[in-house]
Amino acid sequence: MSSPCDPQNAPVGDVGAALLMIDSRLKSIHDGKTEIDPEQQELINQFARSLGPRGANDVLDGACTLIYMFMTWLRKAHEEHDKDVIEYVVPNLVATMRRMPKSISPEAVPTMAGLVVAAGTGLSPNLWRKQYGDWTKAEMTPLEATAFLLAEQINRITEDPDFATRMVSEALTNSDGR
């Protein structure tokens, strides 16, 4: 029986723009920058304003698609070692988010954990979330952080700081050729 949260029913969104934002954050962290460069933040804000409501929703859907792709990769990697992805990914994600109270409110943590569990069990994270209503402004930073933290976990597992970005870029390139 098909679920209303089946990924085939979900919009893919603007994965390229979402990936660009996540990759930018990954690179700044790996360059040793713990604070967001105000100039870079202004460029991101300017880009977000230029998207308009439809474009912003597409980037939001793209971020959820990234979470789904990252969790699919993590699930397969954990299954190769007879481990449950939920057991190994969610507690670390929640613990990390709880240590980020300036960026992620405690109220957003369960929603982001739910997104990750949905994706880890083969459901669309954006369709799972939408069943509870519209996204809130307060969930935007936690959503970005969730995608970032999953990408960073993949990069640590592979010992390659660009693996997650490259994986998605290659998937996008291969899908364009069909």
Rank of each mutant, 00 (worst) to 15 (best):
L26A: 08
F148K: 09
W73V: 11
S175M: 05
G133V: 01
I67W: 03
G32N: 12
E35K: 02
K33L: 14
D82L: 05
P4N: 15
L115Q: 05
A145W: 02
A164S: 02
K27Q: 09
M71C: 12
L172G: 10
K76G: 06
E152F: 04
A147D: 03
L43P: 05
A151I: 06
D84C: 09
G32S: 13
A151L: 05
T146R: 08
P53N: 04
I154P: 00
I29T: 11
M167Q: 00
N57H: 11
V12N: 07
E35Y: 04
A113Y: 07
I154V: 05
P110E: 13
L20V: 14
L149N: 10
V168W: 07
A77P: 10
K130R: 15
P101M: 00
A77F: 14
T121R: 15
S28L: 09
F148T: 09
I157S: 01
R178D: 14
D61N: 02
P91V: 13
K130S: 13
V109M: 00
V12I: 13
I29N: 13
V116K: 11
L115A: 09
G52T: 01
G55M: 02
R156Q: 14
M97Q: 03
V89Y: 12
G55N: 04
E87L: 08
D61L: 01
A171R: 07
L43M: 12
E35L: 07
N155R: 03
T65C: 11
D82V: 04
N126L: 05
E170Q: 04
A17P: 00
T72W: 10
S175W: 03
R156E: 13
D14M: 09
R25E: 04
M100S: 10
S124N: 03
W135G: 08
T65Q: 14
Q46W: 11
S175I: 02
S24R: 15
H78G: 04
D160C: 07
L115I: 09
P53G: 00
S24L: 15
I154W: 11
R99M: 13
G122E: 09
E107S: 04
V117I: 14
V168P: 05
A108Q: 14
D6L: 02
N45T: 11
S169L: 08
D37M: 07
A18Y: 00
Q131L: 12
G133R: 06
T121W: 14
A108W: 14
L123V: 03
T158N: 10
E39I: 10
A95M: 06
Q8E: 08
L60W: 03
C5N: 15
K33R: 15
A119V: 00
L20M: 12
K76Q: 15
R99I: 07
D6M: 02
E87Q: 14
L115D: 06
V12E: 10
